[in-house]
Amino acid sequence: MAKLGLVCTMLTPENMAIKKAAEAAGAQLSIIRDEQAPFSLHGEPSLSNLDVILARSSSFTRSLYLSRLAEYAGVPTINSSSAQSLCGDKALTSAFLMQKNIPTPKVLLAFSPSSALQAVEQMGYPCVIKPPVGSWGRMVCKISDKHAAEAVVGLKDSLGHYTDKVYYVQEYVDKPQRDIRVFVVGDEVAFSIYRKISETSSSSFITNLNHGGAAEEFSMTDEMAELVHRTASCFGAGIYGVDLIEYPDGHAAVLEVNHAPEFSKSAGEKAGQVAEKIVKFALAKAKK
């Protein structure tokens, strides 16, 4: 049976579900914790001895390095390092989507506080400033006026990480208090949900479940399904969380694409089935 590597930072509920599914499928599972041992750049045996790797690190940086090492060793990695590098950086995701003619909100990119304020003025109020790298809705700011823009840009400028000096200014979409998460495994949609701003949400604007948003199962329109499949195929066969946002006129656009999507909260009772689909997909990609 194929040797499946699960690269992770922690045994999150998703990784526990994948472990259980891999064992049920009879795979030889190796769990590789990204922070527990050094990795050799000269043929790391914990990676090169595997037939396929599921890259599920919580850390984008670690996932990218380890996936590239595995690929150099000839081990198929899901998702590929090239897909991860696009998905893990919102600026690159947006640029890639636009290049592929996939509808996505407008974005301006700036690299200094003064050009960031110009970008905000050009985009118009309200707009959204996001960190290019990051997740779970952290530091996503709706900019309602010039004072807010100056405050957020000034704050980012004072922070120490180099990605804080990258100003990703996105069009604000007046969405209907929800967005859509579509979980794709290969050609298949494992589930699709609304993520709704709820009474327990910590934000009146961010729908992320980590901010208390509520998951509600729903069926996509044919137009949405076509958009999701087209998007996923552009990034290459893999496992993605494709987020859609609805404009007031009802048409949908791709907001972002997640390369190691979580599913324990969003899939609810289907989480075990999702893990089974992930393992089945990974084993089909294993070295023969």
Binding site: E35, S58, S59, F60, P131, S135, W136, H161
Partner: peptide, 23 residues
């Protein structure tokens, strides 16, 4: 928290969330 060892039973803090953590 994170389970560090079962025999002997050891428990510690789960890894801190870092800037590039996410999905």
């Amino acid at each position: 928290l994170e389970v560090l060892s079962l025999i002997p039973m050891q428990i510690g803090h789960a890894p801190q969330i870092e800037e590039d953590f996410g999905e």
